[in-house]
Amino acid sequence: MVEIKTPEQIVKMRQAGLVVAEALKAASEAAVPGVTTGELDAIAKKVIESHGATSNFLGYHGFTGVICASVNDEVVHGIPGERVLQDGDLLSIDCGAIIDGWHGDAAVTVFVGGGHAPELHQLSAVTEGSMWAGIAQVRKGNRLSDISRAIEGYVRRQPLPPKGKYGIIEDYGGHGIGSAMHMDPHLLNYVDRRRGRGMKLVPGFCVAIEPMLSLGTPKTHVLEDEWTVVTNDHTWASHWEHSVALTEDGPLVLTAFDGGRAKLAELGVTAAPDPLG
């Protein structure tokens, strides 16, 4: 069963989404050489608590942080701790928050320091671009697979990087979100025709769209900590995510400060009005 939200519930999710946006902004700005991932976790925790929200990551199946901090060849679910960030690292920060039982979830890729190779900048840009291509398909009458097709199609249309290729991570994808962080439906970042077109999108549908790309293989494995996901060939990876609601007036990006207005306008899509003004 897919949970369809009322406008009032979407307002709560927008509130949670803005807390996530604030936490990611603070953690991203603090991600400089010499800082530990645990210190970034503490910064995000302080932001979440200051807004009267709670973390949906902390304690989730025993997870010990309020953020996932995944560095270089780590794709997702990196545990924050004593690791010191180095100049040239590529860091993905994933974060979530709950307001009155309603969830927000988003992720960004951050360049630590400078001197990053061009293919890393392209990797992050293509990952983020594919996310927005998927978000633009969150419209009445479309189906779930239209989002997947847009994500994969965007990636496949991009020029290959100077070194490597773009691997669309296969074992992880987007998900429904609302009264829980992870809900039906599961959203692939590529088209699997065996699954059919998927559900029809209707107002009240909410989804976390989160493409993950590597500069090599789409295959991954989990480290001995039972959380951290790394690429099998140890090529570096990028992860971007937003939570999105479909309203009667179009898509509302719950975890973007402007509700997705600017990025969607670039794609010829009008974002729904922000219910919080």
Rank of each mutant, 00 (worst) to 15 (best):
T255F: 10
K140F: 12
G268L: 07
V202L: 12
I98M: 10
H51P: 06
G96S: 02
L246Q: 03
D146C: 10
P7R: 02
R197W: 14
D87H: 12
H175T: 10
N189P: 00
V191H: 01
T228I: 01
D89S: 08
V75I: 14
K45Y: 13
G198R: 01
G204E: 06
D73H: 13
S50Q: 12
E128A: 07
L213K: 06
W227P: 09
D146T: 13
A208T: 14
S148L: 03
R193E: 15
G259D: 01
G101W: 07
S243Y: 03
A23C: 08
G17H: 00
V84S: 08
V35E: 00
V76M: 11
F63M: 00
P203N: 02
L252M: 01
I168A: 08
K25M: 13
D100L: 08
D89H: 06
P273M: 05
V20I: 02
V110I: 12
R14P: 09
P275M: 02
A262H: 14
T54H: 09
L246V: 08
A31H: 07
L144E: 07
E152A: 10
P159T: 08
V20N: 10
R197Y: 14
P159H: 11
Q158P: 05
A30L: 09
L215E: 07
G178C: 09
S70R: 07
I177D: 00
E170T: 15
E248T: 13
C68D: 12
V108L: 13
V11C: 10
I168T: 05
A180I: 02
R156N: 12
G216C: 05
H239Y: 14
P275I: 11
A180W: 11
P211C: 00
G59C: 10
E49P: 00
T235S: 15
T109K: 09
A245F: 04
A44P: 00
V155S: 05
Q122S: 12
A27G: 12
A23W: 00
L252C: 00
D100H: 06
V138I: 15
Q158C: 11
S238D: 06
D146W: 01
A265S: 13
A31N: 02
V84I: 15
M199I: 15
I147A: 00
H103G: 08
V32M: 12
P118I: 06
E119T: 09
G52M: 05
R157K: 15
L85W: 04
S238I: 03
D41A: 10
I10A: 05
R197C: 12
L252Y: 02
E74H: 10
L252H: 04
T255W: 06
F63C: 07
Q122L: 14
S238K: 06
E152W: 04
T231K: 07
